[in-house]
Design a protein around this nucleic acid. Structure first.
Lengths: 159, 159
DNA sequence: TGCGAATATCTTAATGACTAAGATGATTTG
DNA sequence: CAAATCATCTTAGTCATTAAGATATTCGCA
């Protein structure tokens, strides 16, 4: 028996609320992703690839495959698709001519970010009222959740 | 100029961290979802449908279509698939014989929940150290984020 | 009551992203 | 230099999905 036992019901229900809210968030973020991709006339994999490239600038085809969980064959056709649509350039790495280096066209970045902009603005407004401590709590929690996901994905039979 | 101006840099970087962490969380939760579906030999849509039915017990084919963002045609074949695999039963609504009522077979629920169990355990352990106040802050934040997603999805040209 | 509109699901044909397997070409290693 | 390894590409086939329209049922209104 611990002190604060009387708080346990509130605690348990808060935890249940958190779990439920977490699941719903995950679902909605996925629906949102699909909606953004559709709006841009892209598949979710395309968007994943472009988001990744927006982060890292450029990457090899193999790195894209790993990031998107696609086979190299699927990446080949995805890159052809994205090249044709003018989103990326792809060229052999002169240093290792087996590799293909994929680069996001800088002039298309703004266009890709646009659908997220309103979202980002809303998010900024949402956290306006948060204290630095609260923000840090959230960040810490997200980081732990990330670690959890990674650990869990490790544990799942990959294929 | 406000008091606490000197906190602004810490604040700004905390906000930036939060945004980045949020994006990564969203991505990982999606990867996780794909992994679970694959493990069960289902598509993500199948999983979405079954999760929904686990929540509500049973629903009409049309409700499933709306929830999963699929056309009615796609739902028809998905339900045939899930019926054949023994996950759901489907029968005409006697009250309105146009409708089809889909029900998750109770004996398959445990099997569907199993992949999430380890995850849930980890999550429980993760929040063990949180105070009730912290938990409530997280829930409130998630709820606001949900509202944001919904508002944003509303604004996007649906199709 | 009965008839046209609306509703819910199903069918069909076609599309396209994706996978598996193996080919091709480049690089590394012994 | 030959064999092994690596990175990407090709090919053939699969399967979930869509669009368009068919079918069956219910609702609304004269």
């Amino acid at each position: 028996m611990i002190a604060g036992m009387s708080h346990e019901p509130a605690r348990a229900s808060a935890i249940a609320d958190l779990m439920r809210a977490g699941r719903e968030m995950s679902r909605l973020s996925m629906v949102f992703r699909y909606a953004i991709a559709e709006r841009l006339g892209l598949t979710v994999s395309d968007l994943e690839c472009l988001d990744y490239l927006a982060d890292v600038g450029s990457a090899t085809a193999g790195q894209v495959a790993e990031r998107t969980n696609l086979t190299t064959g699927a990446v080949t056709s995805m890159l052809r698709r994205l090249q044709q649509a003018g989103y990326v350039t792809a060229e052999r790495d002169p240093a290792d001519r087996r590799r293909v280096i994929v680069t996001l066209r800088p002039e298309r970045v703004a266009e890709l970010k646009r659908p997220y902009e309103r979202f980002a603005e809303r998010a900024e407004r949402l956290v306006e009222g948060y204290s630095v401590e609260e923000l840090m709590l959230l960040v810490r929690h997200y980081d732990r959740m990330q670690a959890m996901y990674l650990a869990e994905l490790d544990g799942l039979p990959s294929r």
